[in-house]
């Protein structure tokens, strides 16, 4: 994995853009899972014909219970392995308003 140090503003901006895109990607992935297991499975039957897990219909169990657990696991993986630590920079001095008059 590419582990160049992140020091300059340019490095930081590139990394932040990458992380924002990863966030959007993971978000879309969750939407697809939620939709496909929810409406996808529910659409193939009626409450009378559904498969039930612990009294919960399969569409709900997969989309909302399993989906939640999966998303937590993916979040941990993404944050630990793709998000990077760097210095956020120094405070620019006193408050902008207090400074502008000096």
């Amino acid at each position: 994995m590419n582990r160049n140090p992140i020091i300059t503003d340019a490095d930081k901006n590139k990394q932040m853009k990458k992380e924002a895109l990863i966030s959007v990607g993971l978000y879309i992935l969750f939407f697809i899972w939620w939709f496909a297991t929810g409406y996808g499975i529910a659409g193939t039957g009626t409450p009378a014909t559904y498969t039930y897990v612990l009294g919960l219909p399969m569409w709900f169990f997969l989309s909302s219970v399993v989906g939640y657990v999966l998303f937590c696991v993916l979040t941990v993986i993404v944050v630990k392995f793709l998000f990077r630590d760097f210095d956020l920079g120094e405070e620019a001095g006193e408050s902008a308003n207090e400074r502008s008059g000096q």
Partner: peptide, 20 residues
């Protein structure tokens, strides 16, 4: 996840620069 993943670092860096 999306609030912090998309806005977090960018806001943190910018707000320090401009004292927001």
């Amino acid at each position: 996840f999306i609030i912090l993943g998309i806005l977090g670092k960018k806001f943190a860096v910018i707000s320090r620069k401009i004292n927001a």
